[in-house]
């Protein structure tokens, strides 16, 4: 959507104020909510994918090499991935300035 949400006029709205762009929430970055962030150590990772499965944000993706990467622009820092990782490959570290 070209205009910022607070600049939208009534004539900009679709019929019934529907949202026509699927998955547009991806434009809303929730990454700045977090107070701690996950750090993944690939040397400990066995590619089991449980971090991917258990992420409430759906922000852990599998890479071409089968390892996983965490998109910190959405990660809210809940720490479930670190808690559930059977290999302790993920540690949570405090967000600092």
């Amino acid at each position: 959507m070209a205009k910022a949400e607070s600049e939208l006029g009534w004539k900009d709205l679709e019929i019934g104020s529907i949202v026509a762009e699927p998955g547009s929430a991806a434009q809303y970055k929730t990454g700045d909510w977090k107070t701690q962030r996950p750090v993944l150590d690939e040397s400990k990772c066995n590619k089991c994918g449980l971090c991917y499965i258990f992420c409430p944000e759906g922000c852990i993706k599998q890479k071409a090499d089968g390892y996983y990467e965490i998109d910190l622009s959405y990660c809210k820092g809940c720490g479930i991935c670190a808690m559930e990782c059977p290999k302790d490959a993920i540690t949570m570290v405090a967000e600092e300035e």
């Binding site: 949400e5 019929i15 104020s17 949202v19 699927p22």
Partner: peptide, 28 residues
């Protein structure tokens, strides 16, 4: 109906309208 619920064009109908947009929705 021009904008029906259909998997070919997934629409979100009935979104949450906070104060920054509710007035515009009512004007429309």
């Amino acid at each position: 109906y021009p904008l029906p619920l259909h998997p070919d064009k997934p629409l979100t109908m009935g979104a949450f309208g906070p104060p920054y947009i509710y007035t515009e929705m009512k004007k429309a």
